[in-house]
Design a protein around this nucleic acid. Structure first.
Lengths: 170, 170
DNA sequence: CTCAAATAGGACATTATTATGTTTTTATTC
DNA sequence: GAATAAAAACATAATAATGTCCTATTTGAG
């Protein structure tokens, strides 16, 4: 579903979104915590900064942080920056010499694609904040489970519904 | 959503499924009608024949045809043969040193992936047969709109529901 | 019956894209 | 000015998407 690159990007952004201090996080630390190749992640973050999704700071104590609030960054914006939003499929099966509408096969996939894109537009980083894995040594409800490399724990604001595919008549 | 290869394969299979005679269709004709590079399509059909989805016949008047009834070929089987069924994502965000469950991000995508796979398992080629583009010069209801290179028209059996993504609470 | 034409099978080569690694430069802080 | 970290340019590897060419079958014509 997600390309490798998009997955890496979202992992990093979710991680950054969990920092209430909104401080700078270095590529090396992110890569270590998220299990992503460091130099590739650097390139991805660079791209995201060109798209004003994150912002960067060079030099000592530099790194990356979100350029906006987690509630203002849609999954759609992220995948868009990475050229990873699926396009509506075109159906190449021609009838009578001209293309009139999508065939049954492509209608189905087009329908899925559109609703997938709608999901990407409806969901922001902020919607993902409270659903991280909860270790045994986890703080109680209302607390987030993500622990950084140095053991800090971030609070968790709210609970959001999940998305699911469903088969519907049309 | 679909990889190029999978899309090519499904186009060809849908096309083959429309032939009530169940005769052999040559790669060149399929490629022409479906707008797919001929030699690549040949390789894909070869692969599908190894997986007993189509069967082939060499020599003059040879070609490919479905190895089973359209109702017996699931989209899942096709994508499986092409190594194109998505796998459940693994969430690499570790809490407390061990992975306990998927984070909110990956829970969402895992949910979508699972239901997408369910759709692939539920849908057969036969379910797609009656929804082809209908040209102005099309036969009435109950008739299929797909016209071959030599202008033949195939009958259409029934109408099936489409699939759509929906956002549900979990 | 034989041979030529047609057509898939299979091996290999090529190109494009994605995913990565390396190195040098530039900005920042101490 | 020395250490640190991103920026940028480049190189590499892996995979997906094709193209080419030769081989093996099958059919039909003579």
């Amino acid at each position: 579903m997600l390309t490798q690159t998009s997955d890496y990007a979202l992992r990093a952004l979710v991680y950054l979104a969990h920092d209430p201090e909104d401080g700078y996080h270095q590529t090396r630390d992110l890569a270590g915590a998220l299990n992503v190749p460091a130099n590739y992640l650097g390139k991805i973050l660079q791209l995201l900064s060109h798209h004003r999704i994150v912002e960067s700071q060079r030099g000592m104590h530099g790194g990356f942080r979100l350029a906006k609030l987690p509630e203002q960054i849609r999954l759609y914006d992220v995948l868009q920056a990475l050229d990873s939003v699926p396009t509506d499929p075109e159906c190449p099966i021609i009838a009578g010499g001209r293309q009139l509408e999508l065939c049954g096969l492509h209608r189905r996939f087009a329908s899925m694609t559109r609703t997938y894109v709608a999901f990407l537009k409806d969901t922001c980083l902020g919607d993902l904040l409270c659903e991280h894995p909860v270790p045994a040594s986890c703080p109680g409800p209302g607390q987030l489970a993500l622990t950084g490399t140095d053991g800090e724990v971030y609070p968790c604001p709210k609970q959001m519904p999940l998305v699911q595919l469903a088969v519907l008549s049309v």
